[in-house]
């Protein structure tokens, strides 16, 4: 499904990703762990098409299609979804209006009829219950005044509504209390499907107790320095990153 080969990317002239190689097949869940500043969010943003980051070399394909040639909105329509580590607040655009516009953009792309306001409201209310968000949130500005945990649940809600092929979850577990973690994990598990790939960035084993990954990778200094099965996460939990030959906060 997703194939990343020797990907290099930089921001403001500074190289952050220094040759990433990663293959994810349909139906698989991959976890990426690694010290702060190692480039996990950068990788996520590059995949989603944030042009604040410059791809200097390498290639990324989704089901054989060259992602790097597509605009952000085209990637989204091809099924790329990024749950942001820090979702932005957009006062003045209501959450419901934003969600409906997004869903209808996808439907239009697939040649399906757009959903009416009433029809969508029903769907949105159901989905918001699934992530345990009060439907009142739909009326508020996008992420406006949402707590950290509410923002994360709103990201998962979007993933559920948009049904992506590739869901990239950037620390969707951080800042969550135990109940919210369970809710988010249930949401992610609901997304698990034969035809869908999930890439999860996380710092904690506790998420992986709920969402058991097929593979775990360690990203450090802009490269994947180790890959393994779910046991690797347990080992990291126990031993930190030191034994891999890097500092806890080695980044640059």
């Amino acid at each position: 499904m997703l194939s990343i080969k020797n990907l290099h990317a930089s921001v403001e002239g500074k190289e952050i990703l220094k040759g990433i190689n990663l293959e994810i097949k349909a139906g698989e869940v991959h976890a990426i762990m690694g010290p702060n500043g190692s480039g996990k969010s950068t990788l996520s943003q590059v995949l989603a098409g944030n042009d604040a980051f410059e791809v200097t070399s390498g290639e990324v394909t989704l089901n054989g299609e060259n992602l790097l040639e597509l605009e952000t909105e085209e990637r989204a329509r091809e099924g790329v979804f990024l749950a942001f580590q820090y979702p932005v607040e957009i006062p003045g655009v209501s959450n419901i209006q934003f969600l409906r516009t997004a869903v209808n953009s996808m439907r239009k792309h697939k040649g399906e009829p757009e959903m009416s306001a009433v029809e969508f409201m029903k769907l949105a209310r159901e989905t918001s219950k699934q992530v345990d968000l009060n439907p009142d949130f739909l009326k508020r500005g996008v992420n406006e005044g949402f707590s950290g945990g509410e923002k994360k649940r709103n990201e998962i809600m979007q993933a559920l509504l948009l049904q992506p092929k590739l869901a990239i979850l950037d620390e969707t577990d951080s800042g969550l209390d135990i109940d919210a973690l369970k809710v988010v994990a249930d949401g992610v598990n609901a997304l698990r499907a034969q035809d869908r790939a999930i890439l999860m960035v996380t710092h904690y084993q506790r998420l992986l107790d709920h969402i058991v990954p097929d593979y775990v990778h360690v990203l450090a200094g802009g490269k994947i320095i180790k890959s393994g099965g779910k046991e690797l996460a347990l080992e990291l939990e126990e031993r930190g990153y030191g034994w891999l030959g890097i500092d806890e906060d080695a980044a640059k």
């Binding site: 989603a48 942001f84 957009i90 209006q97 934003f98 953009s105």
Partner: peptide, 25 residues
């Protein structure tokens, strides 16, 4: 705001519509 614009287009919303939403906001 570039960050807001990126958030909207990353959900498949085209640039014209995203720009209009933000301008109306």
């Amino acid at each position: 705001d570039e960050e807001s614009l990126f958030y909207l287009v990353s959900r498949g919303i085209d640039r014209k519509e995203a720009g209009t939403l933000l301008s109306m906001a």
